[in-house]
Design a protein around this nucleic acid. Structure first.
Length: 219
DNA sequence: CACCAGGCAAGTA
DNA sequence: TACTTGCATGGT
């Protein structure tokens, strides 16, 4: 049955309920520790998670999944370990840039970074070359449990196909759409973003849409 | 074979 | 400001 929307909040809530009912809890982010989540956030830039998982396994196997030991690695050795994740040279440099911030300004402790609060920590992360808005928000939400909304290509594509945003909607405007119209709830934002990715992978694909099965049909 | 994947920065006009 | 290009492995 169709439902009437009286506000953007109701629309976004309805979309969430539809996706959650169809797909259930997503158990994000896959990762044993907040630090591992941050490493994964950089490695997964424009890259499938299966490839990233291999790279993370290599780092664990080498015993360097920690701020100090990863920071101490030569770039060539780091690149070699993360090779399965693709873009390994640039990602090695980006990881090192992040570790430089963490080690030199926060004593290697993510807690010291996140305890500043969302806005200050976000500004710090965005100052790192190689950390853009999605990577920063992923770290803040999934490692720091701070209530920021993560937007990605799946989110924007699905919103566009359902005429909820227009074709020139950017990261910032979509992030604000969710944050201005939903309660400031890290658990909700966690599940909501993960559901967008699932919908994007399963139904709202780039070149093979399966719109007939999409839980967003009828919003 | 072509296309895609949980982006970002640098270069060009 | 608004496009375009490089980065790279691995699955479908």
């Amino acid at each position: 049955m169709a439902s009437l929307q009286s506000s953007i909040t109701d629309l976004l809530t309805d979309i969430y309920n539809r996706m959650y009912s169809a797909l259930g809890p997503q158990h994000w982010w896959p990762g044993d520790t907040p630090f591992e989540v941050c490493v994964g956030a950089i490695l997964t830039q424009n890259t499938s998670w299966t490839n990233v998982s291999r790279a993370i396994d290599n780092l664990k196997e080498a015993g360097v999944m920690g701020a100090a030991s990863l920071y101490a690695l030569p770039l060539e050795r780091l690149a070699e370990l993360i090779r399965p994740a693709g873009y390994y040279n640039i990602k090695a440099q980006r990881l090192h840039n992040f570790l430089t911030l963490l080690m030199e300004s926060y004593d290697g402790e993510l807690e010291n970074l996140f305890s500043q609060g969302l806005e200050a920590a976000r500004k710090e992360l965005l100052s790192v070359n190689g950390i853009g808005p999605e990577t920063a928000d992923s770290m803040l939400l999934y490692a720091g449990r701070l209530p920021t909304f993560v937007v990605d290509a799946y989110t924007i594509r699905a919103l566009m196909r359902h005429d909820i945003v227009d074709e020139n909607a950017g990261y910032h405007s979509v992030r604000e759409l969710f944050m201005d119209n939903l309660p400031e709830d890290a658990e909700l934002f966690n599940e909501y973003h993960a559901l967008w990715v699932n919908v994007g992978k399963s139904f709202c694909k780039k070149s093979k849409p399966r719109c007939d099965q999409c839980p967003l049909n009828g919003v």
